Amino acid sequence: MDVHEALYTTRMMRRLHPDPIPLEIQARILDAAIRAPNGGNTQRWHFLAVDDPATKAELAAIYRSSRAREYADIAAGELAQPLHDPQAHAKTMRRITTSGDYFTDHFAETPLLLFVFAIDDHGGANIYPAIWSALLAARAEGVGGTITTVLRYEAERVMRLLEVPTEAGWRMTAMLALGYPRGRWGVAANRRPVQEVSSRNRWGQDFGVTVPFPLWPGESSG
């Protein structure tokens, strides 16, 4: 797969088939992830793959209660508010909420839950490149997924269930839910264009280029 196709069409997939992901594909995804750049090549990461049905069922209950706490924070205005076009944002959030409800209801059916842990990660600078590489590698294998940090609301319960050695300093960064998607891949069409979110030399100065539509696929792609 062309790298630009992977970059442009990888998106969050919350509606997944329950079919298992073969171990050799899981291995290729993680082998790509660990090639990601990380400061000093310290590789202070650990990936925990969960596919045991009983464990997934326990995590599903924790996820549901964590999501309820997240909704409470949203209702209280404690999470980030939209910077632009509140009406468009509200429409997007309604769509995401519907998709998220489906994901919550079918959490235990997710073929693979990939938990990502790190130590002293400087705000995610070292681990998030590996997470994104995993999602891109999954896309190349026809595997979709979503990244969620919702379980951090009840991180202690999760870490205890998964027997994570917290005394060594390990902390949960995120969880990837991976599986073969029910939806279609496609270029995100709801992004504000480059010139509206970019500046040059000083904040607010013209970036110098106008990008009226996605640059992939280009004219040469047909």
Results as ranks from 00 to 15, higher is better:
residue 189 A to F: 04
residue 153 Y to K: 11
residue 126 N to D: 09
residue 143 V to Q: 01
residue 179 G to Q: 05
residue 154 E to C: 07
residue 165 P to M: 02
residue 206 D to V: 08
residue 110 T to D: 04
residue 159 M to Q: 15
residue 77 G to L: 08
residue 150 V to F: 12
residue 7 L to N: 07
residue 129 P to A: 00
residue 167 E to R: 15
residue 149 T to R: 02
residue 202 R to F: 05
residue 52 D to M: 10
residue 180 Y to L: 10
residue 94 R to N: 09
residue 7 L to W: 03
residue 25 I to L: 12
residue 125 A to V: 13
residue 183 G to N: 15
residue 205 Q to A: 13
residue 93 M to R: 15
residue 120 D to F: 04
residue 142 G to N: 02
residue 178 L to N: 04
residue 208 G to H: 00
residue 86 P to I: 00
residue 194 V to I: 10
residue 211 V to F: 12
residue 125 A to L: 14
residue 124 G to A: 03
residue 12 M to F: 11
residue 216 W to M: 01
residue 194 V to K: 06
residue 124 G to M: 03
residue 82 P to M: 02
residue 146 T to K: 05
residue 178 L to W: 03
residue 92 T to I: 04
residue 2 D to Y: 04
residue 8 Y to W: 14
residue 161 L to N: 03
residue 126 N to F: 04
residue 96 I to E: 14
residue 85 D to C: 03
residue 32 A to E: 06
residue 104 T to I: 09
residue 192 R to Q: 09
residue 57 A to L: 07
residue 51 D to K: 12
residue 208 G to Y: 01
residue 19 D to M: 11
residue 7 L to D: 04
residue 196 E to N: 07
residue 185 W to R: 00
residue 22 P to W: 06
residue 186 G to R: 00
residue 145 G to N: 04
residue 131 I to S: 01
residue 189 A to V: 08
residue 90 A to M: 05
residue 168 A to E: 15
residue 180 Y to D: 09
residue 196 E to K: 08
residue 172 M to H: 07
residue 152 R to W: 10
residue 84 H to W: 12
residue 166 T to R: 15
residue 174 A to R: 10
residue 148 T to A: 00
residue 220 S to R: 15
residue 66 S to R: 06
residue 26 Q to H: 07
residue 18 P to D: 12
residue 29 I to V: 01
residue 16 L to P: 10
residue 32 A to S: 11
residue 114 L to Q: 00
residue 204 G to Q: 01
residue 52 D to N: 15
residue 138 A to F: 05
residue 103 F to Y: 14
residue 199 S to K: 03
residue 170 W to F: 09
residue 74 I to F: 13
residue 96 I to H: 15
residue 126 N to I: 02
residue 95 R to G: 12
residue 78 E to V: 10
residue 195 Q to R: 03
residue 11 R to D: 05
residue 118 A to D: 07
residue 37 P to H: 01
residue 210 T to Q: 03
residue 206 D to G: 06
residue 93 M to A: 13
residue 141 E to Q: 04
residue 33 A to M: 07
residue 164 V to L: 09
residue 190 N to D: 08
residue 33 A to P: 08
residue 96 I to V: 15
residue 86 P to A: 00
residue 75 A to H: 14
residue 162 L to T: 07
residue 48 L to S: 02
residue 12 M to Q: 13
residue 3 V to F: 08
residue 212 P to A: 00
residue 80 A to M: 11
residue 136 L to S: 01
residue 175 M to F: 07
residue 177 A to N: 06
residue 99 S to W: 12
residue 137 A to Q: 02
residue 204 G to D: 00
residue 153 Y to G: 01
residue 105 D to H: 07
residue 25 I to E: 09
residue 126 N to S: 03
residue 12 M to A: 13
residue 218 G to K: 01
residue 149 T to Y: 06
residue 196 E to H: 07
residue 105 D to R: 05
residue 11 R to L: 11
residue 129 P to G: 00
residue 184 R to Q: 06
residue 103 F to S: 12
residue 75 A to T: 14
residue 15 R to L: 11
residue 201 N to T: 12
residue 160 R to H: 07
residue 145 G to T: 04
residue 188 A to G: 05
residue 143 V to L: 01
residue 215 L to I: 07
residue 146 T to Y: 05
residue 216 W to Q: 01
residue 45 W to F: 06
residue 147 I to V: 14
residue 15 R to N: 12
residue 49 A to T: 10
residue 155 A to H: 08
residue 148 T to Q: 01
residue 157 R to W: 11
residue 87 Q to I: 05
residue 145 G to D: 07
residue 9 T to L: 06
residue 41 N to E: 09
